Amino acid sequence: MIYSYGFANYFGFKEGAEVSFELNSRVPKDVSFNREVATILGVKGANGAGKTNLLKGLGFLLDFCAYSFRRDVSEFIKADPYFDSQEPSDFYIDFKSGDYRYTYELGVSTKEVHYERLFRKSIKLVEGKSKGRKVCVFERKFNKIVKRLDEISEIDVISLRENASLISTAHNYNFSSSSRLLKDVFNFFSMHISNVIYTGMNDFAQDLDSIHKVSEFYNRVPEAFDFVKDMIKKSDLGISDIEIHENQNEKGEKYYYPLFRHEIANDYHFLTIFDQSSGTKSLYVKLQKYWYVLTLGGTLILDEFDLNCHPFMLPKLLELFESPESNKLNSQFIFTSHITEVLDKLTKFRTYIVNKENNESFCYRLDEIPGDLLRHGRPISPIYNEGKIGGVPKL
């Protein structure tokens, strides 16, 4: 579970950005659902303000810590500094895994890791009080480990790479006696799905190959398919059922595809996915990602999550992460949206605004705005449309 994350000197954010999921005791129960950390967080702002980069920073951090060792030794680190800055880009994330709360810090240029640090503190309660103190798990300076706990002494034999994190490297060394600590931390970073890459949004493809892969997954995992069918039937008034069918291509290889049942009077017809609306096609592919994160835990990061979806459908998707019944693992969902009405669902406690001045991006959570302009229970969208809280284009 993520408490907060941030970065500085990264793309358009010169001085940096801090994004907090934390909810204090003053947050109403119909927003917090008795959680100390939000499970949904929305980002609004004008085109070019830096919304995608705010998500990209989180996606980069999670991906780098989990998978950077798999990349080619000569591949550059995909973290661009602010314009022509020669200083490293700095990142941090504060998160919980198991019985510990961790803080991870990273400084990188496009060529190498400058520093990497991990701290932890026990969050077990003993007689109502927090146990333990914050300790340094390891500290790395360039390609040298300068500090580490005894319980991860196996990392002493690691040959660090300039373009890979210690966490990713240690995981791929596959130590026979690898500590639980490093496994838990790696698992946290690996449990994420994002449609934001180095170059921006990469929408989950709806091409034939992607449809076949998703259909094969649904055929193999009926619980996921039931979830998807239920959501699509609620959103598309013409569909009464979906079936997965099997066929073979010219090479004799199996592939799977969906057929959508449409009832007409006392009869019915099956149509292919290419006969469906763009919204239905999008949901068919994307809902696999929702199911995966809700079922296994982790973080879903979606730029323009409202793409191809009717506005009335968006609250239903968000409620999947709000409800303790559908989100038993407290999985988290952070996204951008161009539909203003989503602000009224999020409230000021779960909305970030991104602005830009003199080509420098900055962000703030709406409950940071002082005064009573934004009162809980009153719609935010009219105030946003009037330009009173920022994040709108100057036309």
Results as ranks from 00 to 15, higher is better:
152 I>C: 01
135 V>F: 07
127 E>P: 05
134 K>Y: 05
130 S>Y: 13
130 S>M: 12
114 H>E: 13
124 K>T: 12
117 R>M: 07
155 I>L: 06
99 D>V: 09
120 R>K: 15
102 Y>D: 02
153 S>L: 10
134 K>M: 11
148 R>E: 08
145 I>N: 02
104 Y>N: 01
115 Y>C: 07
136 C>M: 12
143 N>L: 12
133 R>Q: 12
137 V>T: 01
158 I>N: 05
156 D>V: 12
112 E>C: 09
139 E>G: 02
130 S>I: 14
150 D>R: 13
167 I>P: 01
109 S>R: 12
96 K>N: 09
114 H>L: 14
158 I>F: 06
106 L>N: 00
147 K>A: 12
143 N>M: 10
148 R>H: 15
140 R>I: 02
167 I>M: 03
143 N>K: 13
132 G>T: 06
142 F>Y: 14
151 E>S: 13
161 R>T: 06
127 E>Q: 11
145 I>W: 02
96 K>P: 03
122 S>F: 07
125 L>S: 13
149 L>P: 00
167 I>Q: 00
149 L>I: 04
169 T>K: 04
136 C>N: 11
136 C>T: 14
97 S>N: 07
166 L>R: 00
140 R>E: 02
148 R>S: 13
144 K>A: 12
156 D>K: 14
143 N>G: 08
96 K>D: 08
127 E>F: 10
145 I>L: 06
140 R>V: 06
94 D>R: 06
158 I>E: 05
96 K>F: 06
131 K>Q: 13
131 K>M: 12
145 I>E: 02
118 L>P: 00
106 L>Y: 01
135 V>D: 08
165 S>N: 02
150 D>Y: 10
126 V>N: 09
142 F>V: 14
136 C>E: 13
166 L>E: 01
134 K>F: 04
150 D>G: 13
119 F>R: 09
114 H>Q: 11
132 G>D: 06
114 H>R: 11
95 F>S: 01
116 E>G: 00
125 L>T: 11
108 V>C: 09
110 T>R: 15
153 S>R: 13
153 S>Q: 12
105 E>Y: 11
152 I>K: 00
96 K>V: 15
161 R>L: 11
151 E>I: 10
107 G>L: 06
94 D>V: 07
164 A>I: 04
165 S>H: 00
150 D>K: 14
115 Y>L: 08
102 Y>N: 02
152 I>Q: 00
146 V>I: 15
104 Y>I: 02
101 R>K: 15
163 N>Y: 07
119 F>N: 05
150 D>Q: 12
163 N>M: 07
106 L>S: 01
147 K>P: 03
115 Y>M: 08
102 Y>W: 06
102 Y>G: 03
141 K>E: 15
128 G>T: 06
153 S>H: 11
125 L>A: 08
127 E>N: 15
157 V>W: 08
138 F>A: 00
164 A>Y: 02
140 R>H: 03
101 R>T: 03
126 V>L: 13
115 Y>V: 05
111 K>R: 15
124 K>D: 09
115 Y>I: 05
116 E>S: 02
96 K>E: 15
98 G>W: 03
166 L>Q: 00
129 K>G: 08
127 E>C: 07
97 S>L: 04
149 L>R: 03
105 E>S: 10
